Amino acid sequence: MKPEAIKDCFLVNGRVELTANVEIFERIKKPPIYEVVRVINKVPLFLEDHLDRMRESAKIVDYHIERKDKDIEKDIKELINKNGIENLNVKLLCTDIEGMGQIFLAYFIKSFYPPEEYYKEGIHTILFHYERENPNAKIQMASFREEVARELEKNNAFEALLVNKDGYIPEGSRSNMFFVKGDRIYTAPKGDVLLGITRKYILQVCEKLNIKIIEENIHMEDLKKLDGAFMSGTSVNVLPISSVDDIKLDSVNNRIIKEVNNLYVNKMKAYIESKTL
């Protein structure tokens, strides 16, 4: 795979390596199990949930991650301290390399956090016909990512909504999707998507706000009937969608989306504060 570690150094099975040493990345030949964790004020956000999901992804493809959670947490702390970084995304990656056995990498990656204007104006998205073979497992597929990136650039879009063979939209290329109709929020059933960590906390927030969640896929033909939509993810939190192809949505002014965003941000801040005491 292409080397993607940035900053001064990264960790291999707990051992510090200089980022200039790209040999180990070049030796990764098969799609690895991975997670991306956002670090805010030196705190890896919702780390326990990310590690649980990473192990679940491995289990789905009959793989076992040997490194312990406490050691992975130490890896991230050392990565933060060695590089002097307070806010950036960390990638955790596990795979087998011929002649080395199982390796576990922790490294910083290029991270983009939407500017305030994206939340005020909403984002443009496109429809992209694609169906994941294993929607519940987070496995890196380079060809898929490259194809989506080309389409996003061509259409000046921020995210692609994946459309399956029946015309339904279970998720985004790198996010979970939520669609608002009246006083209800629609999102894909658990078996159809990667269960995002942000998604998990959004569902908790909706329960607290007494907002009805319908776990049901939206058909592409029904997009015009929506009152709003938003995507969620590690780097974006709750991000309103202003358009899907040529369909306009007034998501930025939707009361439900605003309430969900505010309470989610509060939950995120509470977690960070609990880890910095």
Rank of each mutant, 00 (worst) to 15 (best):
Q204L: 14
L223W: 08
D222L: 06
N210E: 10
V236W: 01
D227C: 01
K248F: 08
K258T: 05
S243N: 10
D246E: 14
K224V: 07
S232D: 10
K267S: 15
C206G: 00
Y264A: 08
Y201N: 10
K212Q: 11
M231A: 15
P189R: 06
V236K: 11
M268L: 14
N266M: 12
I256H: 01
E221H: 12
T198E: 06
S242D: 04
S232Q: 09
V252W: 10
L195C: 14
I202A: 04
N254E: 04
N210G: 05
S243R: 05
N254W: 02
A229D: 11
N254C: 08
V265A: 00
K225R: 03
Y201L: 12
D245N: 10
I218Q: 03
G191C: 00
K258M: 13
V252G: 12
G233P: 11
K267V: 13
V265Q: 07
I197P: 05
I213L: 06
V236Y: 08
S232W: 01
L194H: 07
K248D: 09
D192H: 05
L194M: 11
L263I: 10
N262D: 13
V260W: 00
V193T: 06
V265N: 06
I256V: 02
K200S: 12
K200H: 08
D192G: 02
K267Y: 07
G191R: 03
I218E: 09
S235M: 03
K224N: 09
S242H: 10
I218C: 08
F230Q: 12
G196Y: 10
I247V: 05
K200E: 06
K248Q: 14
I211V: 13
D245R: 01
T198D: 03
S243L: 07
S242L: 01
N217E: 11
I256M: 00
P240Q: 06
D222M: 12
I211S: 02
D192P: 09
K267F: 11
E207D: 13
Q204G: 15
V265I: 15
I241C: 06
G233K: 09
Y201F: 15
K190L: 12
K208H: 01
N262F: 13
I247S: 05
H219V: 07
L226P: 15
V260E: 00
P189L: 09
V236L: 14
K267L: 15
L239C: 07
S235G: 12
T198R: 07
V236G: 11
D192I: 10
N253M: 15
S242F: 02
C206M: 04
V205W: 00
K224C: 01
E216I: 07
L249M: 06
L223D: 13
Y201D: 12
L195K: 08
L239W: 05
S243K: 08
C206N: 01
K190H: 13
N266E: 15
V265H: 04
T198K: 08
M231Y: 00
